[in-house]
Design a protein around this nucleic acid. Structure first.
Length: 805
DNA sequence: AGCACGCCGACT
DNA sequence: GTCGGCGTGCTC
């Protein structure tokens, strides 16, 4: 009996989201293993697609005629047993296609490209042939895809059987190759050769000298040229004479380039740090998949705890994974890890080219790198024998991927930690409520760092009431207290950072007199501004009302669409402080690659006095010269129509406050707000995360929000708005009555951005505590959506969404 | 996704 | 009568 394999093909639809059985042709027998990429014929015609082998020699249920594998693309599996299992779990948990899960775990170069080539197989009249094919007998279909006339002509020819379309799958993954040279003769033989060379052939004599100096060693051609000062042509001549052999060698592209690895002496730990390290290392040694919540104020030395824990994992002969949010994956942190662990470190971040990413991935896979530092997708790094997983700034929302597969790196990290019996360390100064709550119930082990390493207290925070400022001085972004402090710092030659919170720009309205923001009467969530209909909508329950002309609270007339741009803010500031050198940092000024670093370096070199920017300046920066931090508009994030807006604002304020006075000089923080009495502002001012946690938990309990309830968002889209609404109505019908009595189904409601790319979006939000039936029902909805509705219908499911916009 | 099969309107 | 429109079903 022929050998059989089960293959998941690269055709991302629900109908093909299952393994297909193929026969292994004789010449490939016993070579195909699970986790390898293969090429398989799929469908009628000569279509060929890439697929992943998920099982070998297990007969499937299919009893029709089987096709043969067309070929294997890998010599060894690209996905090991662990990652194959993980992919299955991931696809199931996130309602994603298995093929999407596979590709998510691999560097993008391993996604094959298919080209469609049109080939002439029969006589075609000369004119048509010349018009379409010019003088070629093959034509890349992608090149005429945009030409409807040529396309229809080709289709006609195809129906007439005069042309066929060939599918070619090709792998884009290429190891970088360099040319090398190897001496072929012995020292004495080279002396002999010297006799046969003309006296004035200096280059060849020098080449002989150089080859002798190599003593048989293989070196890259480029290096040989540099060392000998000879041209490539000389080496070619040498090869012709049999003096040397040219070869090819695989090398890694080096993304670290000239990045300095600064081996620094590890600082001594304070008592809290030592205690935390001890507990984590115990778990590492005993191989317990325990989850730790390392809660430490800014500057308390969490990173040093991570490094010590990694050290232990390595000492035990195991590997370590360290996740950081993309935004804080700065050269600073990378060089710190490199400084400690040197070449064993691989770094994965969005700044790498596809080739560099592929090379780092191969270094990890071959076991050459034992420590991986990277952003979200690095959680899939092909490390073996993981001894420790660290997730820094675990509350960051960027750990959740917002397209398919909609996974949260924290959940994946937990899965892998359990698989490897390794501890998981979640670190943060302001943990997510979910994690902090789990630590409270004992599900996670909480470790605290209450003291800053430099013994300095956290900077004092002054809250300025902008209502009064605006009443007294008219519209402005800058209060007098802030301006006075800025002037003071300018005079002392010290630096300041100003943050303009742009989150939710113009997406809600607020009264400039009393700070009132319209809220939904049913949901107690701020209403979203819809300019197209000039209305305010709640997209939890669908409530809609007109934009008020006067404030319902104070009857004032100054209702504004809230939001202000950095450009305007800089211009205004310059009128107050004409001599100040100001750097503006926002998406506009940092769009070009490298600009982010360039502006920061400039500021770090004290080439400017004030850095004014959006959220992006809040994270990971460490400028000793900064003694003043101002938040121009703390409210903007506060009143977003999102139950997490308070949590995010608190995190952000805590984060920026940590930017002030990190070195010798004491720092100061000013928060400007229209809601000075708001509990978020007040507790941020007091640096009191724990009280914020308690208070916010109460509100979440009252509103039936996470972490008391889990949430799932089901989105449906369609080019026709009526249809989109109808689809989601039908989805609701399939859920109603099937779920737990405590489960709440909200909607369907149109999304805040109702139309995107000419599709209309409606969504349902499900809140539940414990609902064993829900997962299966949602999977069934995904699977049935295609048959039940027309082809234009798209249904997406987002478990634990971070945003509901 | 992409292709074939199949059932209805405007043309040689 | 046929060419070709796109609705529906299937791909090992």
């Amino acid at each position: 009996m022929a050998e059989l394999v089960q293959v998941i093909v690269d055709v991302p639809t629900m109908q093909t989201n299952r393994p297909y059985t193929y026969r292994v042709p004789e010449h490939l027998e016993r070579q195909v293993q699970p986790g390898m990429r293969v090429m398989v014929p799929f469908g009628r015609g000569s279509r060929e697609v890439q697929g992943f082998v998920v099982a070998v020699d297990q007969p499937g249920e299919f009893d029709g005629d089987l096709k043969d594998l067309a070929g294997v693309m890998d010599l060894s599996p690209v996905l090991n047993d662990e990652l194959l299992k993980l992919a299955g779990w991931l696809a199931d948990q996130t309602y994603a296609f298995k093929i999407t899960a596979f590709y998510t775990m691999l560097p993008s170069l391993l996604k094959a490209q298919t080209t469609r080539l049109v080939r002439l197989v029969d006589e075609v009249d000369e004119q048509t042939r010349l018009a379409l094919f010019a003088d070629q007998d093959e034509l890349d279909l992608a090149k005429v895809q945009t030409d409807p006339l040529a396309l229809s002509q080709l289709m006609r020819l195809r129906r007439a059987g005069k042309v066929v379309i060939d599918y070619r799958v090709h792998d884009r993954a290429r190891a970088k190759q360099i040319t090398t040279i190897t001496p072929t003769l012995s020292f004495d033989d080279y002396e002999g050769e010297r006799l046969g060379v003309l006296k004035n052939a200096h280059a060849q004599r020098n080449l002989l000298d150089y080859l002798q100096s190599l003593a048989g060693k293989t070196v890259p051609l480029k290096q040989a040229q540099e060392e000998s000062g000879l041209s490539a042509a000389t080496f070619t001549t040498g090869a012709k004479r049999g003096w040397l052999k040219k070869g090819q060698a695989e090398v890694y592209r080096d993304p670290s380039g000239a990045l300095p690895t600064s081996p620094t002496a590890p600082p001594t730990l304070n008592q809290e740090q030592a205690q935390a390290v001890k507990r984590i290392n115990q778990a590492t040694d005993q191989r317990t998949a325990e989850t730790f919540l390392l809660q430490g104020v800014t500057g308390s030395g969490k990173t040093e705890v991570y490094l010590r824990a990694i050290e232990r994992a390595l000492a035990n002969g195991r590997s370590a994974l360290m996740l950081v949010p993309e935004i804080s994956l700065t050269p600073q942190i990378v060089s710190r890890v490199r400084g400690r662990f040197g070449k064993q470190v691989a770094v994965l971040h969005s700044g790498l080219s596809n080739g560099e990413r592929y090379d780092e991935w191969r270094r990890i896979k071959r076991g050459e790198a034992k420590v991986v530092v990277g952003a979200r997708s690095a959680v899939f790094a092909p490390l073996d024998n993981v001894g420790l997983i660290i997730m820094d700034e675990e509350h960051e929302s960027s750990y959740k991927q917002d397209d398919a597969p909609r996974y949260h790196a924290r959940n994946v990290a937990k899965w892998r930690a359990a698989y490897h019996h390794a501890p998981l360390v979640l670190g943060s100064a302001t943990p997510s409520l979910e994690s902090r709550a789990r630590a409270a119930t004992g599900l996670y082990h909480r470790l605290t760092l209450l003291h800053r390493v430099n013994q300095r207290p956290l900077p004092p925070i002054q809250v300025v009431d902008m209502k009064r400022e605006v009443q007294a001085r008219g519209e402005t972004n800058y209060s007098l207290p802030l301006l006075n402090l800025l002037t003071d710092r300018l005079n002392k030659g010290q630096q300041s950072i100003l943050m303009l919170n742009r989150r939710g720009f113009s997406s809600f309205v607020m009264c400039r007199d009393c700070g009132y923001v319209p809220k939904c009467p049913n949901c107690d969530i701020s209403l979203t501004l819809h300019m197209d209909s000039r209305s305010l909508k709640c997209h939890y329950c669908g409530h809609e009302e007109r934009i008020p002309n006067t404030c319902p609270n104070c009857q004032g007339h100054r209702i504004r669409y809230y939001g202000t741009g950095t450009e305007k803010a800089v211009a205004e500031l310059q009128t107050y402080l004409p001599t100040a050198r100001i750097i503006r940092m926002d998406v506009d000024t940092t769009r070009r690659k490298g600009m982010h670093e360039k502006l920061l370096t400039k500021f770090g070199n004290h080439e400017a006095d004030i850095l004014l920017g959006t959220q992006m300046i809040a994270k990971g920066l460490d400028f000793p010269g900064v003694t003043l931090v101002g938040v121009l508009n703390a409210d903007t994030g506060l009143d977003l129509p999102d139950f997490r807006s308070s949590e995010r604002t608190f995190d952000l304020l805590a984060q920026v406050a940590g930017r002030a006075g990190r070195a010798d000089e004491a720092g100061q923080v000013v928060i400007q707000t229209f809601n000075p009495d708001n509990y978020v502002i007040q507790l941020a001012r007091a640096h009191d995360y724990e009280r914020f946690f308690v208070q916010e938990m109460n509100l979440r309990k009252l509103g039936a929000y996470p972490p008391y309830y889990y949430t799932v968002r089901v989105m449906g889209s369609h080019p026709d708005e009526q249809m989109a609404a109808r689809v989601m109505q039908a989805v609701r019908q399939e859920l109603v009555g099937q779920l737990d009595s405590q489960t709440i189904i909200l909607g369907p409601t149109p999304r805040a951005i109702a139309r995107l790319k000419n599709r209309y979006y409606y969504q349902i939000v499900i809140k539940y505590r414990h609902d064993p039936a829900l997962h299966a029902r949602l999977t069934a909805i995904m699977e049935g959506a295609q048959q039940q509705f027309d082809r234009e219908t798209q249904v997406m499911i987002d478990p634990d969404p971070q945003y509901f916009l």
